[in-house]
Design a protein around this nucleic acid. Structure first.
Lengths: 255, 255
DNA sequence: GCAAAAGTGTTAGTCCTACACCCATGG
DNA sequence: CCATGGGTGTAGGACTAACACTTTTGC
């Protein structure tokens, strides 16, 4: 913690960051059959915010986003995609020179937060079970929130979440969304719930299974999922090679 | 022209623009059955560049892009979509403090162009026949180039064009691409050629027509296209209301 | 043994594909 | 009058949507 504060101090004081440019990450995870977003709860105001950061002078946006992802989740190698820039001058208009969520004793460039920012929105897909959620210096808590919870986000952060979800829907056939959001081994009902959640509507259990299997992108494993009541479903894993190839063409069908 | 120089002078000297942030527009037009991009030829070096500009302190990126579009094409109300941010620090690394394409007598902030820029890529769809192509202060010519011509673009501008085309392909079912690229009245073969160009492959004439008509998004008009040899095709126009509604669902099919 | 969840199968209808045929126009 | 491009039609096959039946599991 001390180290982080020191880092922040160094960063802002030496003007390591570019002015005006920030990025925010909508980190999606899937748990309990629900699509969730990793959020920060800010100190003092207790408002919710997306994990984000500023662009350093010598890095690409992708590198900056990976840096943020690593710090909040502990993970490397995360699936990450830029999806939109938010540039309304009014979006940061209400930012005071020294936002409430900054500790008095935290050294920083007084003007930095008062500047106008455009923010580049990224969405990330992670395996919920592998994430070690870690707050940043401005936050007291880092936690998963259901995407339907819209309350108490700062600035336009909930709008960013909604936009990310919409993009996710549109790219469902072209991005390895299932692969990145589910654990290595998963059941067909879990995969289906994921698709249903993203699409926002229910799918026929039997048709879903047949279609997914027709793509030949899954390897069927031995039974499991003993925990649940009722008949235990099979476990599957993605055949990554075939999955990638199929996505390049776009998974066909009417979903 | 004199007026423009004055504007530029005022702008740079008063620091009207945000540092580090630019935007570039891939302006697509369709003519002679070919997909074209509006390009600038820079003074001195005669290199090609995309129309672009810088973000003013009090405007959104959309407003900035519309400003650029208006200046280069004379058109308002252009279909415009942000599609990607280009942020590699090396992309502007080769920019000298005073680029060759700047006239000696053109006043500007000496450091401005030497800064690192991220650029936000927009693509625009315009009716070729309505564009009045106008160069900016750095250019001697503004002209349409075929998208296959890749030679002599500055920085990563041709990469931006390729990425724009790829996005166009992916969004073909969800954006009013036909409506914005074609003149108000057009023939079925023209519409087909547009689709073929964007998709990069040929389509069956008869199946194409049947499918497009099945969407009920076109109004059939009287004959015409007298100029061409052979049988004269019908003219159509878009039924904008139905088109918009259909796009929200996404035009179905396997294209 | 019963309710609920999961595996497997069937069928009718729709959509796509790949063609064949005729009509209009300009050289 | 014929080559070329444009308008219209049709048959086979693939895919989808909707639904029935059986199997497994925990209470």
């Amino acid at each position: 913690m001390t180290k982080k504060i020191t880092l922040a101090k160094t960063s802002f004081e030496t003007k390591e960051f570019l002015d005006h440019i920030s990025l925010d990450c909508v980190i999606f995870g899937f748990h309990d059959n629900e699509l969730k977003v990793l959020t920060l709860q800010l100190k003092r105001t207790l408002e919710n915010a997306l994990p984000g950061g500023f662009l350093k002078k010598e890095e690409t946006l992708e590198e900056a986003a990976k840096r943020v992802l690593k710090e909040r989740t502990g993970l490397d190698q995360i699936f990450l995609k830029q999806f939109k820039v938010f540039s309304d001058p009014l979006r940061s208009k209400n930012n005071p020179q020294k936002p409430d969520y900054i500790d008095d004793d935290l050294p920083y460039d007084l003007d930095f937060f008062a500047k106008r920012f455009i923010t580049i929105g990224y969405y990330a897909l992670v395996d919920f079970t592998k994430v070690n959620a870690t707050p940043d210096v401005f936050s007291q808590k880092c936690e998963w929130k259901n995407i339907t919870e819209s309350s108490n986000y700062i600035l336009d952060h909930y709008e960013i979440i909604r936009d990310a979800l919409e993009v996710l829907r549109l790219q469902l056939r072209h991005q390895p969304i299932g692969y990145n959001l589910l654990p290595d081994k998963f059941t067909m009902p879990e995969l289906q719930k994921l698709y249903e959640t993203i699409l926002g509507r229910e799918l026929d259990r039997r048709n879903f299974q047949r279609k997914i299997l027709s793509y030949k992108i899954l390897n069927k494993l031995g039974e499991r999922k003993k925990g649940g009541a009722h008949k235990s479903p099979f476990l599957y894993e993605f055949n990554l090679e075939k999955y990638q190839k199929a996505l390049n063409e776009g998974l066909s069908g009417t979903w």
